[in-house]
């Protein structure tokens, strides 16, 4: 099996506090991987190093062998990494369709085109992407009128526009109603099942994680403490201690400070 992503020795500290320490993991082609951990475990820091918003102190991140560290987010996107945001970021003054068209326009290197009409470009591809997330009926609506759950689905369509090898989803279901959460992740799982894209996501909602993730990584205080399938993670005493609390974590925290 080939690895889409290889992460080695990823580390970052802020003012002497180790946010992430020596994280190693691989992502297999077509895998749906969850990165979980309690608040402050370093999930977001880890994520931001993968997508180029944060530069690690040490370590390497390779996408199909190509190093990502040191490249700006837009270059990483060009290499085939899509992403969605914890708090949605879309172009609010455009329609749903235009938002997807923009990603296609950028993918085809046409952002400096001064003469075409932007709304006439890549309409079919954009519609196909919207169909993938069942948003085709809302294609002509202004993005500013969408419900939050629909914005999340739109982001997913945008993130898939350049046919990425890897999709990074930061807290994809944050702020959504429980039924919408299940639906969004079921949709994502379907897309992964179709092949071509592998996903890493962070998540707070354990139901979502256990329902869909092929494999789960558990972070605590910046270090990977467990890895495995849903059943394995549930049975892992270390994970239980972190999540349910055994008192020891507080003692260790005191020792660090």
């Amino acid at each position: 099996m080939t690895h889409v992503l290889e992460v080695r020795g990823l580390s970052k500290s802020f003012d002497g506090v180790h946010a992430v320490r020596g994280v190693d993991f691989d992502l297999t082609e077509g895998e749906f991987l969850a990165l979980i951990g309690p608040n402050g475990a370093g999930k977001t820091t880890c994520f931001n190093m993968l997508n180029g918003y944060l530069r690690p102190d040490a370590g390497s991140v390779r996408l199909r062998g190509a190093e990502l560290i040191g490249r700006p987010p837009r270059k990483i996107w060009r290499m085939g990494v899509g992403r969605t945001f914890q708090i949605t970021a879309t172009f609010l003054s455009m329609t749903v369709l235009e938002n997807v068209q923009m990603a296609l326009i950028s993918h085809h290197h046409r952002v400096f085109d001064l003469f075409s009409r932007a709304t006439r470009l890549y309409v079919e591809q954009a519609m196909a992407l919207l169909e993938l997330v069942s948003m085709q009926d809302q294609a002509r609506r202004a993005c500013s009128e969408l419900a939050y759950g629909d914005l999340k689905r739109l982001e997913l369509a945008i993130a898939l526009a350049h046919e990425p090898a890897l999709l990074l989803m930061d807290e994809p279901t944050a702020g959504m109603a429980p039924s919408e959460r299940i639906a969004l992740m079921a949709l994502t799982a379907e897309i992964v099942a179709k092949g071509g894209v592998s996903v890493v996501f962070t998540e707070h909602d354990m139901d979502v994680v256990f329902a869909h993730a092929h494999r789960i990584l558990v972070l605590n205080r910046g270090e990977l403490i467990a890895e495995g399938s849903g059943a394995e993670i549930r049975a892992n005493p270390l994970v239980q201690e972190v999540y349910l609390g055994g008192g020891t974590s507080f003692v260790q925290e005191g020792a660090h400070a």
């Binding site: 700006p72 996107w77 172009f91 609010l92 003054s93 993918h107």
Partner: peptide
Amino acid sequence: YTLRGIRDSQTRAEAIG
């Protein structure tokens, strides 16, 4: 359109390259 996009959301614009 790209200029308007950057005005709307710099984060999103960066994220689509």
